[in-house]
Write a protein that binds this DNA or RNA. Sequence first.
DNA 1: ATAGGCGCCTGCTGGC
DNA 2: TGCCAGCAGGCGCCTA
Length: 281
Amino acid sequence: MPELPEVETVVRDLRPMLVGRRIARVLRTSKVSLRTPWRGAWGPRLVGRAVTEVSRRGKWLSVRLDDGSYLLAHLGMTGQMVVAPASEPRQTHTHFVLSLNDGATELRFRDPRRFGSLEWLADEAALRARFEESGLGPEPFGVRPSYWREALLGTSRAIKAVLLDQSVVAGVGNIYADEALFRARIHPARRSTALSPREMEALRRAVEAVLTDAISRRGSTIRDYIGGSGLRGGYQDEFAVYGRGGLPCPRCGAAIISARVGGRSSHFCPACQPEGAVRTG
DNA sequence: ATAGGCGCCTGCTGGC
DNA sequence: TGCCAGCAGGCGCCTA
């Protein structure tokens, strides 16, 4: 669920509430184990540590501690990371809780579907190795056009699948892939190698623009997503195509198509995003 | 080697 | 009203 704009929003929300605070207590509040278990004995490693930094890389969220170690979280489809008053009842599927030394708040990790993960890494080298292991590509902002072109020419897949490939560019998920393809007027099923240089460049810029706009609206809430302070996103109100099958295209009025491309539901305008002839305008 | 498909989970929706 | 299939923002693993 959470794609780059959602994770970025969580990071921005959490930062002022976490940086400078110390971890007073670590609680495992759910009996289920996460799909990727916490690596190592987490209790002793965290208690007493202060948070020095909260950041994002692709869809990963990291919390740096004052001994140089990191808590690394991936929110999967339904993961939430929220700082809440300790007095507030915890929701179901809250798996881990870090009590903070202000005595009043706690960081909660909640994840109904449990596709998310939470792990501890000893230092920055281990963090980088973890990103390497997951095949994480560059951040989508300021991608070099030459890199982009080579990445798109280096695979025979549909462009939609290429956008979802985190090793090509980190952070784009199903929503923003569809929205970026719409902005660039490219049909999701077209082979990435079939795009003209102009289209490739339009798409590179569309990805940046869509993600930037979504961040400014605090991401998109379809169902589960909330920011680090519990607020919902607002970008779902600006979707041009995602989840809008059968509704009119905001640009030309044609009915938006909903179809499976590369195993994922995809939404596009059949008029603005033609599958056949490459438009070379 | 690459690309596609499946499985992991829970919860909600829509059709019968 | 109730049941059940299908589907959901992700990703890693397996197979052809």
